[in-house]
Design a protein around this nucleic acid. Sequence first.
DNA 1: TATGAATGAGGGTTCATTCAT
DNA 2: CATGAATGAACCCTCATTCAT
Lengths: 223, 223, 223, 223
Amino acid sequence: MENTELHPTKARILETAARLFFEQGFHATGVSTILREAGVNSGSLYHYFPGKDELLVGVLEHYIRIMRPILMEPVEAVVEDPIGRVFKLLERYREGLVAFDFRLGCPIGNLALEVADDHAEARRLINQNFSNWIDAVRDWLAAAGDRLPARVDRRQLASFILTTMEGGIMQSRAARSLDPFDASVAQLRAYFDALQAEAAGSQTTSPSHSCSPSDSAAPTRGR
Amino acid sequence: MENTELHPTKARILETAARLFFEQGFHATGVSTILREAGVNSGSLYHYFPGKDELLVGVLEHYIRIMRPILMEPVEAVVEDPIGRVFKLLERYREGLVAFDFRLGCPIGNLALEVADDHAEARRLINQNFSNWIDAVRDWLAAAGDRLPARVDRRQLASFILTTMEGGIMQSRAARSLDPFDASVAQLRAYFDALQAEAAGSQTTSPSHSCSPSDSAAPTRGR
Amino acid sequence: MENTELHPTKARILETAARLFFEQGFHATGVSTILREAGVNSGSLYHYFPGKDELLVGVLEHYIRIMRPILMEPVEAVVEDPIGRVFKLLERYREGLVAFDFRLGCPIGNLALEVADDHAEARRLINQNFSNWIDAVRDWLAAAGDRLPARVDRRQLASFILTTMEGGIMQSRAARSLDPFDASVAQLRAYFDALQAEAAGSQTTSPSHSCSPSDSAAPTRGR
Amino acid sequence: MENTELHPTKARILETAARLFFEQGFHATGVSTILREAGVNSGSLYHYFPGKDELLVGVLEHYIRIMRPILMEPVEAVVEDPIGRVFKLLERYREGLVAFDFRLGCPIGNLALEVADDHAEARRLINQNFSNWIDAVRDWLAAAGDRLPARVDRRQLASFILTTMEGGIMQSRAARSLDPFDASVAQLRAYFDALQAEAAGSQTTSPSHSCSPSDSAAPTRGR
DNA sequence: TATGAATGAGGGTTCATTCAT
DNA sequence: CATGAATGAACCCTCATTCAT
């Protein structure tokens, strides 16, 4: 569905740049590498993008377009339970860590720390990516209804989930081990358990279909 | 105390490189910039370091040396309460965000995402930095004794605190706002409250000097 | 009246290129700039002109076409006296210097020094432009009849007037001041006065309607 | 004498750039050509000059340094008569036209029309070159004493000589013929004759050692 | 005719590094 | 140890031009 209206060459440039920025970082990726791997020559790239910075902007807009279809919707298709979706999403990132041998994490997180300061528009779009991610998760949390205490701000909690993902991935990449990621997710799970217990305690209705700690997406190895 | 045994030129190179890698990132910092700002010339740099990569290694070792004296010890000097120290430390990073207008966060976190994949030794040292950070916090948590449930792995929890810091900073830099950082810290605080409540519930001893949620370092604005 | 038979697109290309070559020089003007400012695309330009060099040729032919209508004829319409026309023409260039803040001078002169060596056809047309300019002024001088000494070659003198204009403009642009131009014109005026005096001395007829030095177009400031 | 204190590499870059800018113009000369012909590689050039623009500035400063030793002093060594020096100097430029087959003229004049508008510092130095040239000639004219009328501003007249040279060269290059240059010099000579006649007429002393028109450096062919 | 995507050589410049002094 | 000139590959980008539609 993505890039439907885009010129194929432009789409190829965008996808190649996205991949390389993800794999190597923005500064470490030379334009010539993008050109070679996209099978395009320099003039064409600069026909579509004024410069490397604008290509970065294009990549970040690309991520905004694809986030829901390739990240949230697959999770929603597989898991029904709102809170289950949260941990399923985290599991996806966990799988990515394994699949790419800890060398890749979250493309937005990488760019956030590398380029945000110097590129105003890029920073804005990185923030937009984060914001959309949080909003999608917040919608799941909202769907959890009274299974979470009313006092808990759903958007703050969603932001905390993003925090857990990004912070967990950062440590696991450095450690080349799932342990830190799993540890963080386990603690988040414990927090959710406490929240659900609190919500259940302050209610008259039956605390049905709770997510038990035991079906955690992240088995807390090394505990 | 750091760099006591270092040649002053080497120390100047190291400190300049550390600052510039922090401010601009590793790839975005040219060797010539380091030379200019350190007031040395290339021959001197390459006398002390075989190359830019090894300079990065030196910087990361430098961070290992200074972490406790400039990060943990000041916190310990100001706050006595073990759990209070955790949130005081987070407050330090919060102050850094404000002081540098959201353009600087955690130097190790930046490098972790930018260079970890390609530099084996750098990755190892980044991990060592994280590990030392976690161990220091774990020691504080251990000092909290039975104010936290026995079932909670102290090191896992310390790692989760690092996760909260790094993930919160990443979002706040992108948002150029304290809100995401504060939101994450507020959720962490809520988790700690739950843990302390649980620990207090399963005990006969008096739950003295608990850190109440109200003295949070991070006012949860925008909730 | 110019470009009557030209296709409007071709005319627009020509006028835009002429303006940009004048403002920026030939090499400093990119084809893409011409395209953008003329509102055409590359295919159209290369439909009308085989390349940038031929566009230059077209521009020089364009100048040949417009020189008399926009340069000589307006002068002739305003001034009747043949010698007066010479200095009126120089005054026009003086006004151009002021109007464009010394950043523009004579379009042909610019191209003469920049491209004449490498473009045979361009050099020929630049020479043709100079030649036409000189011929027009020679006609004026011829109309002055015996007010100038018979021994003076009218075409040589006309060439010297072109020399004065080009050399004066070159210096005034460099100085960002009218002084050098005015100085050169003042000296030329003095030369004309001497010539007219000589002619008057060797004649029996009345020295009517002489151009007195006092109505000089170029007030000799800074003398 | 020039470049005595300059590093040999820097001097070679400067001389090569000066020659190429002269032969091809500033924009038409690629940095890579300068590097190749100077036998230097890019890093070295940028070690001495921040960029191509500053190299241009260096070249113009170079011209300021060498103007008197290679232009004025040889003329002074050969010709004693002050006014004779003026026309000897013009003869030198005439010889240059012939020697380089009308493809080279005055390096400063070329740059004046090509780059003056966009490079503030270059424009200033071009003006300085012109100014120094004029001052040197003015000194000769001053030495002519009462052989020229007192009413004639010596510096204005010197500027007019520069004008004659630049305007004459421009036309001769376009024409690939000495005729325009010679024509302009012939007219200038006629003007000088008139001035000297005027000066002689208003004096009691004998008009000794006048430069007669017949010993003109520029035989007025094609008259 | 018009359109604008594609071409690829070359533009000026910076890079990390080496090495003679 | 220090100096700073030298190296040349690589950087991002623009150039004039071609060509399929």
